[in-house]
C-alpha cells in the first residue's frame, strides 16, 4: 500500500502525520514532483493559501498537483480547501479548481473570531470537535457537491466525487474519525 501524502510547502503538516500513523498508515511530506509517485491520496493542510500558491507556481508543482487531485482522493483543510476550490474571492486568487466550490477567504474574521465548536455531520452518530481558525466560507457551486455538515447555515464539510473539503480543523484534536472517512474514499469508476 502506498503512503498518504501531506502537501508540505507550508502549514500544519505534522499533526496529520501523527493522526495517520496512529491509524496505521504511512504518511509522507510532499514537496517535489517525484513525491507524487509514492502516494495514493493527499491532504492539503491548513496554513496560508497565498504562500502555498506562490511556492506551487515557483517550483512548477501546480500542474502535477492538479492532475493528482483530479485522479486520486484528496482532502483540502481550510487553506487546502481554498487551493482546491473552483473560485476564490476576498481577495480573488488562482486555484487548482478541482472541485465545484466557491471559497471566501477569512470569512469568519481574524484570529479574535476563531472558535471551537461541535459540528454534526451525516457521516457520524456523534458530533465532530471542530476548530475554525481564520476559516474560509465554502459554498457549493453544483448539485454534484454533497454537503456533509453545516454550521450556522453554512456548509463546512463537503464532498464531490473523491474530493473532500473542510473549512475547519480536526487534526489538532484526538478525534480521528474524519481521517478514517478520508482513508475510505475511493475514486468512482467513470
Amino acid at each position: 500500500m502506498k503512503a498518504v501524502g501531506i502537501l508540505a510547502l507550508q502549514g500544519c503538516v505534522e499533526p496529520h502525520v501523527r493522526v495517520l500513523r496512529s491509524l496505521g498508515r504511512d504518511a509522507i511530506s510532499v514537496k517535489r514532483g517525484e513525491d507524487f509517485e509514492e502516494i495514493d491520496r493527499l491532504i492539503l493542510p491548513g496554513g496560508e493559501s497565498s504562500t502555498m500558491l506562490r511556492l506551487l507556481e515557483r517550483f512548477s508543482l501546480f500542474e502535477p498537483l492538479r492532475s493528482f487531485c483530479l485522479s486520486r482522493p484528496t482532502w483540502g483543510v481550510c487553506a487546502g480547501a481554498i487551493l482546491l476550490a473552483a473560485k476564490v474571492e476576498h481577495p480573488s486568487q488562482v486555484s487548482l479548481a478541482t472541485v465545484n466550490v466557491l471559497a471566501h477567504r477569512n470569512f469568519y474574521g481574524s484570529q479574535r473570531e476563531s472558535f471551537s465548536t461541535e459540528v454534526r455531520s451525516s457521516l457520524f452518530d456523534k458530533p465532530l470537535s471542530a476548530d475554525f481558525i481564520r476559516a474560509p466560507k465554502l459554498s457549493p457551486l453544483a448539485s454534484t457537491v454533497e454537503v456533509l455538515a453545516e454550521y450556522g447555515g453554512d456548509a463546512v464539510l463537503l464532498r464531490e466525487n473523491h474530493t473532500l473539503l473542510s473549512s475547519f480543523h480536526v487534526e489538532l484534536e484526538s478525534d480521528t474519525r474524519l481521517h478514517q472517512y478520508f482513508l475510505s474514499l475511493e475514486v468512482a469508476p467513470r
Binding site: A8, L9, Q10, G11, C12, V13, E14, P15, G46, G47, E48, T51, C78, A79, Q111, S114, F115, S116, D131, I133, R134, H169, L172, E173
Partner: peptide, 15 residues
C-alpha cells in the same frame, strides 16, 4: 486544542 496554539500550528514551515 487551544485555538491560540492552533494558529501557531498553521504558521509552521513558513516565514
Amino acid at each position: 486544542m487551544d485555538l491560540r496554539t492552533g494558529l501557531a500550528n498553521m504558521l509552521c514551515n513558513g516565514v
